[in-house]
């Protein structure tokens, strides 16, 4: 299969790669770049475990081809905070920890990145806004209770 030359900014660094035209962004991230924080939880673009930021917007990386990120800035969960000893968490990550917004952790990267996009668009979202926004992110552990609290806190408002 012919490949496509791809250049993007991935977690702050410029990356070039040859990708097959049918390579999904999530496979490029997980298998091509070893960024396994982005998860695959379904095959119908419902669960949101694979959400990343592309061009500042939250997208489901299972529903986007890698080549579509040409020239974009892509941020995965690994790129949200510096991964060094003593590295501080992003305020949304910190809010999820503070409010026990995660249990098994599998949906968490997608939840956090989706929430980052929400509060960028709507600072200080109310409960209904958060719950509605998370329509595309499924969590089986938390009953969403503490996720909603975390997102509100991470967005500067709420409890």
């Amino acid at each position: 299969m012919p490949t496509i030359a791809l250049t993007l900014t991935l977690n702050g660094k410029q990356v070039s790669a040859e990708v097959e035209p049918n390579t999904l962004l999530v496979d490029f991230l997980r298998e091509g770049r070893g960024l396994t924080g982005t998860h695959v939880g379904c095959d119908t673009s419902q669960c949101g475990a694979c959400v990343v930021l592309a061009g500042g917007r939250s997208v489901k990386s299972c529903t986007m081809f890698a080549f579509e990120t040409e020239g974009l800035e892509v941020v995965t969960i690994e790129g949200l905070a510096p991964a060094v000893v003593g590295g501080e968490l992003h305020p949304m990550q910190a809010a999820f920890r503070e409010h026990h917004g995660l249990q098994c952790g599998f949906c968490t990267p997608g939840m956090v990145l989706s929430a980052v996009d929400l509060v960028r668009r709507h600072p200080n979202p109310d409960e209904a806004q958060v719950r509605h926004w998370l329509e595309g992110n499924i969590c089986r552990c938390t009953g969403y209770h503490n996720i909603v609290k975390a997102v509100q806190a991470g967005g500067g408002g709420g409890s």
């Binding site: 690994e78 999820f96 995660l102 952790g105 599998f106 968490t108």
Partner: peptide, 9 residues
Amino acid sequence: DHRFLIGRG
């Protein structure tokens, strides 16, 4: 939580 939140689970 830390490892899950930074994508290192």
